[in-house]
Every structure is written in structure tokens, then in C-alpha cells.
Design a protein around this nucleic acid. Structure first.
Lengths: 193, 193
DNA sequence: TGTACATCAGTGAACGCGCGTTCACTGATGTAC
DNA sequence: TGTACATCAGTGAACGCGCGTTCACTGATGTAC
């Protein structure tokens, strides 16, 4: 049956939200359209009223996932002995390299969850992704001090380390939990002081 | 038709080699058994004489991929002004964070290519992967100076940065080539001096 | 060394299954009068 | 404001396709005598 325009818009948002979460959890190749629409409380047939194709939905889901932001870890501000690290930055690093973030990719950083899939998903997806990455670099530069080119370099290096460490921690989490925790702890202490 | 034991062994190796390359190129979910056996010059039916299942082959392929080693980049030794970086290390970093490595995942680092897929592939695969990662940390520590716990920490941080930077560079390569090159250059100059 | 035959690596058709996509249909919405 | 009807979001069956896996079969290998 038909549905009000407002409800249709809400349904569309629900599909994008479900896709953004499921793709991060199971990978771009690991989820079908039936599962995504079911998660949004719909059936798969109506999906093409909203999206041209599976790839078009995946691109919107990727954009949506990039609206995610790191949750600063509470209690890691260390007001006394401040390391080689600006105030808010330490909490960001600790939040990103946390066991919770490692174990909840569906609500986490889209770069760590999707980058490898994106590299194989064609030019349009790569463009969407590159814009998200650039926006993250900009946002991260706001947290840093120093002159501009050096600030940007530091943002790139720090974010690369965080993405790499989280990726390694996830892949080793089940097979060698001690190693996984060691990677998280080592890199967050290095970056966060 | 039957085939000599020596030929059968060679065929088996060929399947594992093809799988190790194709999985790194297209992801664990992006290649079928038909394509892998075809690449090895065989048909798909006989695969189960050698491997219990698709997952068992994938595990062997992952082990095989971890036999890969970084090719040091020639001409990047910089014998005069040595940075904050040991001799052979600089060439390793420049080889890893090269455009060539970015564009040839099939013969490259299995961590950057497969980590995200491995995180979703179950406990046995995670164990295989964790062993490969640990072996890479050990190998990298051999290139570093300093006392042991610090050496290990440096190996973990450096490898995390390299994996993250290569992953980011690959995902953005088509959509924003300038950004992709900037990431590679920034991180290799930071790590390699 | 020669012969007879059991073994088994490899072939290719077939299976059930889930995928992305299409489409005839339903019925509440929203518009024209 | 009320009525008649066109619109179109959503349903669910159906499609062709490729997947992992199975299996009857082939015929060279390698062994027993």
C-alpha cells in the first residue's frame, strides 16, 4: 500500500541507517538487500523506489557512515601530567583505540571498517570515501597546534596509525586476544601520551 | 584422468598461490573457487581432493600470503644524512608505502589487503592471521635498535602506521589520486626520515 | 622386466541456495473538481 | 467541505545468475604378481 510522503522519507532514512551499520559490521559484500530492508522494517521489493541500484545505496550508506564521530573516552583527560598531546586529542585517541570501538564496528569509524572494500568497489565509491577521509583530516587538524603544513602532516600520520592499529586489533581479536589488546594499548600510549 | 603424485602436489601449490593472490586482489568474498582453480589451470570439481572446504583453502592461502616480504626500495638508502631511522628500515618503509605496492595488492602485504575480511571470517582464520602478524612484528624488531620492550612498541606503532596509510591510500587512489599520494608521501617521510 | 588391475587426481554436469533486479498488484494518499 | 480518481510506496512472487559443494565418471599412475 501507499504511504504518506513523510513516512516514505522516514523509511528511506531507515534503509540508509541500516545499510550504514550492516555494511560496517559485515563488509560491503557481506550483506544483501533483503537483510538491509528487513532491518529497516520493510521488504526488499520497494527498495528501487528510493535507490537506483545496490551500488547507489552503498554510496549513500558510506556517506552516512562518515557522519560518525569519535566519542572521546571519559576519564582519560589526565589534567595533571599532559603528554606530547593536546587536551581533547588524548580522549579522542583513547576512545578510538578502545576495546569497545574494536568490538562495535557497526557504530564505529567507516575508514577502519570499509577502506579495503572501497578500494575494490569502483571510482564513484572511492570518490565518496576520499571526501569523507579529507573531511576527517580537516576535523582532526582542528585538534592540533602548530603551523599549517606540519599540522596537516601530523593529522595524516596520527589517523593512519589509528586506522592501522584498529584494523590489526580487529583481525587478531579472536585468534589472539592478548596481541589485540597489546596493539591497542601500545599505539594509544604512543599517540596519546 | 589421474596425474602423478609430483604433478598433483604442484597443482595443489598452484591453487594455493592463485588463491593467495586473488584473495588479496579482490577480497575473501570477491573470488569464487571456479576462478581460483581456473587461474591454476584446473577445473573446480577436483578442488575437494586437496582441501576440505573453501574456508580451509582460504586459511592456507592466508598463510601463503604471509610468506610475502616487503621489497626494500632501491636508491632510498640515503647513505649520507641518515634520519631518525636505521639503515635498512628506511628502504623497507619506502618500498611498503610506494605507489607500486599500493597498485599491486595481489603480490603485496596480506595485512593491508585482508585484515578487514579476516575480522569477519571466524576464529580459525583470525588465529592464522594473528600468527602472521606476530611473525611480522618479530621480523620488524630485527631492523630496530634499542632495548627490547621499546623495540617491540616501536615495531607495533610503525607497522600500524604503514598498514593504515597503505589502506587509506588504496581506498582514495581512484577518487582522489592527489590525496592518496599525499598520504603515502607524508607517512613515509615521517617514518623513514 | 612385463602384465593386470586397483587407485585416485581431475572433469564437468548437477544440486540447492541466496543474490540483485523486475514486475504485476495493492490500497492509502493526496489532488482535482 | 465532499467525492472521485490518479498516484505511487510498498508487497511478494518470479527471473537469471553465480556461488559452494557433490558425484558419477575417466584414464593415467603406480603397485602386486
Amino acid at each position: 500500500m501507499k504511504v504518506s510522503k513523510a513516512q516514505a522519507a522516514r523509511n528511506r532514512e531507515g534503509i540508509v541507517d541500516a545499510a550504514a551499520r550492516l555494511y560496517r559490521e559485515k563488509g560491503l559484500e557481506g550483506v544483501g538487500l533483503a537483510e538491509i530492508t528487513r532491518e529497516a522494517g520493510l521488504t526488499h521489493g520497494g527498495l528501487y523506489r528510493h535507490f537506483e541500484s545496490r551500488d547507489a545505496l552503498a554510496r549513500e550508506a558510506c556517506t552516512r557512515a562518515f557522519e560518525w564521530t569519535i566519542t572521546p573516552q571519559e576519564g582519560s583527560e589526565s589534567p595533571g601530567a599532559e603528554g606530547a598531546c593536546a587536551g581533547g586529542l588524548r580522549a579522542l585517541v583513547y576512545g578510538y583505540l578502545s576495546t569497545f570501538h574494536r568490538d562495535h564496528p557497526g557504530e564505529g569509524c567507516p575508514v577502519a571498517a570499509l577502506a579495503a572494500d572501497v578500494a575494490r568497489a569502483g571510482p564513484e565509491m572511492s570518490e565518496v570515501f576520499a571526501q569523507g577521509v579529507e573531511r576527517n583530516f580537516q576535523r582532526f587538524m582542528g585538534e592540533l597546534q602548530g603551523d599549517d603544513p606540519a599540522r596537516r602532516a601530523q593529522a595524516i600520520v596520527t589517523l593512519s596509525s589509528m586506522v592501522g592499529a584498529l584494523t590489526l586489533a580487529r583481525a587478531t581479536a579472536v585468534g589472539n586476544p592478548g596481541l589485540s589488546e597489546e596493539i591497542l594499548a601500545t599505539v594509544r600510549e604512543q599517540l596519546g601520551g
